[in-house]
Amino acid sequence: MSDNHDEHQHMNIPKYLGIFGILVVGTIATYFAATIDMDWIFPGANTLVALIIAFTKMSFVMLFFMHVYWSSKLIWLSAIASFFWLAIMFAFTMQDYVTRGTGIFSV
């Protein structure tokens, strides 16, 4: 049974601590990014930055803490598919709401 442990030899304690460090830095960064007004770039820039940091953190947790990086294609697929389906739900719900009011879509 030793053959299927090779995948775990990729991670060791310093690496775990490194990922942990990245996550902590991400948390602090997201906190302070929120105190800077970025609305002058475009509306919602703050949220975008916060979400980018959150996605980065999530990727590190999934890839290394949850060992997706060394997992089978099917597990990659199920992880990606769930976010794809979330995107379907968000996009197809919002396409209704954003085309309702006034503006170029006004009826």
Binding site: I53, M58, M66
Partner: peptide
């Protein structure tokens, strides 16, 4: 169990900026 625990962590990673950090400063 680890997968489950990490998943719960990931949910919070999103909840924190989306709930706590709106319009903090400006």
């Amino acid at each position: 169990s680890g997968l489950y625990w990490h998943f719960v962590d990931i949910v919070w990673i999103f909840l924190f900026p989306l709930l706590y950090l709106l319009g903090r400063h400006f």
